[in-house]
C-alpha cells in the first residue's frame, strides 16, 4: 500500500520489508531502501543536532501525494516516512522504500522520490553546529540564525 507521512520515532524496517515481500505483486523482484541520517560534519564544522519541524497535516499529505504520483508500471509500492523533532548525529531522518519489478527501476525511482522529498513537502531544518545555528534550505543555502547572514 502506497504510504507517505511524518513520524516521530524510528520505524520497524524489518517488519515493513517482510510484509512487503510476503504480499508482493507477482511481478515484483526488488525492494530498494534509502535511509537518510544526521551527519556529524558540515564543511568541516562539527554538527551536534538537527531540529526538523513540519506543518501538519500538509506535510504528510504532500508525502503521500508524492508516493501516489510516482507509482507507474513496474513500480508496485512506494513508502515515504520522514522524521520530525530534535535529532542527534546518527539518528535516522528519512526512509524511502520502493517495491519494483527489478533493481534498475527501483533505484531510479528511489532517487526521483528523494529529490522531490527534498524540495516539495513543508519540512524545515535547523542545524546546530559548533559555529552557531543555521536554517538549511533545499538547495543547500544556509542562513545563520543569530546574525541573520547568509553563508
Amino acid at each position: 500500500m502506497v504510504e507517505g507521512r511524518v513520524i516521530e520515532n524510528d520505524i520497524d524496517l524489518n517488519k515493513i520489508v517482510d510484509h512487503l515481500a510476503r504480499h508482493a505483486h507477482e511481478g515484483m523482484g526488488a525492494i530498494v531502501i534509502f535511509i537518510g541520517f544526521v551527519k556529524g560534519d558540515i564543511d568541516g564544522k562539527k554538527v551536534s543536532r538537527l531540529d526538523y519541524s513540519v506543518y501538519e497535516p500538509y506535510t504528510s499529505k504532500k508525502l503521500e501525494e508524492i508516493a501516489s504520483e510516482e507509482m507507474e508500471e513496474g513500480i508496485y509500492d512506494i513508502k515515504i516516512f520522514h522524521k520530525y523533532g530534535n535529532l542527534d548525529v546518527g539518528d535516522k531522518t528519512l526512509y524511502i522504500i520502493v517495491g519494483a519489478k527489478g533493481r534498475k527501476k527501483g533505484f531510479e525511482k528511489a532517487i526521483k522520490v528523494l529529490e522531490r522529498v527534498k524540495f516539495e513537502p513543508p519540512i524545515f531544518k535547523l542545524e546546530h553546529r559548533e559555529d552557531g545555528e543555521y536554517w538549511v534550505f533545499g538547495d543547500g543555502t544556509r542562513l545563520k540564525r543569530e546574525s541573520r547572514d547568509v553563508r
Binding site: V117, F119, E120, G138
Partner: peptide, 10 residues
C-alpha cells in the same frame, strides 16, 4: 494563513 520559508526535506 501560513508563511513558509524555502523547504528542506531529507
Amino acid at each position: 494563513v501560513a508563511l513558509l520559508p524555502p523547504v528542506s526535506g531529507g
